[in-house]
Structures are given as C-alpha cells and as structure tokens.
C-alpha cells in the first residue's frame, strides 16, 4: 500500500510532494512505488485535476472524496478555500501495477488476502477509507493553514518547510 500526496496550487503547479507507505498492519511507512510509477503519479494526479474541477461544484464540502481512478490508482482530493488542491493518490500494490503490462501476477505474499481486506486502498470507496482520508486531509489542512500564515510565504510558492512535511508524515502515520 503506497501513497503519493501532493498539494497543487492554482496554476496546476505542485507546491508540495511526499510519498509514503502505510503504517497499518505492520507496514513500515515506506512507499513502494516503482521508478516508473513515481513518474506516472504526477501525471495521474495532473489528469485527475479535471475531475476535481468537475466535482468541486457538486457539493459544498471541501473534501471531495474519491475523484478519479486511473487503472489501479485512486485519487482523493481535498480542496481548500484558496483553490489549492490536496491530492492523495493511493495504490494498493504498486509493485504489481505496471503501466506497460498491467496484469502481472498478483503478489505472492501469503498474507495478502487477509491484509488487503482491511487495507484502505483495497476498497477505495468504502466508508472506512473515506473517513480515514478525510481525517488525514483535515489534519493536513490544519498544518497547511499554519504554514501559509507565514508572512514569508507567498501564494503558489513551493512549501519547503520541514515542519510541515513532518506534520504531513505524522498525519499519514496516524490515519493511513
């Protein structure tokens, strides 16, 4: 289970990027995207912005739930008031998701079946997943608000604060 979290500014520009793995079920919190996938993640998230723009007018909630699916990746989005998008891409088994030949054999870990049942991305539209992602997003949003209150931060600038990064990582550890 690997996650790629990015914050997209108003001009499709990434402000923050982090990838991490799950901490649940004995996960070590390390993302296991393949090199190719790391590259593709940005593209997938970029393409999902189209869906965000569609979904954002549908409700009044800032959290837009799952907005897009691309092959085996699910993208959840949280839209701030300033039109900054928090995009969380989750891939249940990145080692298995090849973009060139998608259907490679499933992973051979014996406990996969049991684990994946409780994994979030294995069931991306389930209420449990949505709740966890929502909580994660809200916590990041709080950290984000504090971060952009920095008078030296200008809109649409890249966030380099290590504290913010740490907070995102903590939130990820807590919920995902």
């Amino acid at each position: 289970m690997s996650y790629y979290f990015t914050i997209i500014g108003t001009r499709d520009n990434p402000l923050f990027e982090i990838d991490f793995g799950t901490h649940k079920l004995g996960g070590d919190g390390v993302a296991r995207f393949r090199d190719e996938a790391k590259h593709m993640n940005q593209f997938i998230v970029h393409a999902a912005l189209d869906m965000v723009e569609e979904a954002q007018w549908m409700g009044k909630d800032l959290y837009l739930r799952r907005v897009d699916t691309f092959q085996n990746n699910h993208v959840h989005c949280f839209l701030t008031g300033g039109n900054v998008k928090f995009m969380l891409l989750m891939n249940p088994d990145p080692t298995a998701s090849s973009y060139a030949s998608y259907r490679s054999p499933p992973p051979s870990r014996p406990s996969t079946a049991r684990q994946s049942a409780s994994m979030l991305a294995a069931n991306p539209s389930s209420q449990a997943t949505e709740d966890a992602v929502r909580q994660f997003m809200l916590e990041v949003y709080e950290a984000w608000l504090k971060c952009i209150m920095n008078p030296f931060y200008q809109v649409n600038n890249v966030v380099t604060s290590p504290i913010f990064r740490g907070r995102v990582a903590t939130a990820a550890k807590k919920y995902l």
Partner: peptide, 19 residues
C-alpha cells in the same frame, strides 16, 4: 449528464493490457 459520469464510462475504454 455529468461530465464525471461520462468520464467514468470513458475510463472503461482505457486499454489496460497490451498483450
């Protein structure tokens, strides 16, 4: 017809396998 609905249907067309 919502755009996302159409896009959802279109995503079914996405070829997933090369072979």
């Amino acid at each position: 017809i919502s755009r996302s609905a159409v896009a959802d249907m279109l995503s079914l067309a996405q070829p997933v396998s090369d072979d």
